[in-house]
Amino acid sequence: MNSSNNSSIFSEKLKTVIEKELTRYETKRSAILPICHAIQDECGWVQEKHIDALEKEYSLNRIQVKEVLTFYKAYKQSEPKKFEIEFCDNIVCCMMGAKDAMAKIEELIEKQGVNSEFGLKGVPCLGVCDQAPAMLVNKDRHHKITNENVEKVLSRYSSTI
C-alpha cells in the first residue's frame, strides 16, 4: 500500500484506520463500509476526492464505493449543514405522525429563517420503533417527536446559532 505517500489527503490517523480495515476481511470490498464510516466521522461527509484517493492509494474500485455510499442513507454525499435532522420515515414512525412532524419542522426552519443551518431528510428505521416517531439531530437521538413538542426540541439547537 501507499502509506508512505505524504501527499495523501487522508490524515495519519485515518490512514491507520483504513489500512487496518483493509486487512480485516477476506475481500477488500468488505472494508468499504467501515472505511467510509471512518472518513465521514473525520471529514463530515464522503467527498469525490476521497473516492478518488481510495481508488488511487488503496485500489478500492470506485464503482463499488459509490454503490455502498448510495445504498446506505447514513452516508452523507453532500456537505452537511450545522444541524442535520434525520427523521425516520418508515412505517411505525409514519403511523405515529412522522409526516406531520416533518412538515412542522420544515415550517419552523422556514419561519425562523435557519435554512442554512438546518438540513432535514427522511431516513430508514432508527431502531426505536417503541419510541416512535424518532429522529436524529447530528448524533443526538430524540424520541416521541410530535407536532407539539418538536419546536421545543429544536429550540435547544437553534438557540446556539
Binding site: 470506485r62 459509490k66 445504498f71
Partner: peptide
C-alpha cells in the same frame, strides 16, 4: 473493467456507470 454498478436501492435502484 468493472465500469457498471447498481446505485441506490429498492425500487429506486439504477444501473449506471460512475458519474
Amino acid at each position: 473493467s468493472e465500469a457498471l454498478g447498481i446505485f441506490d436501492r429498492g425500487d429506486h435502484a439504477i444501473i449506471g456507470t460512475y458519474p
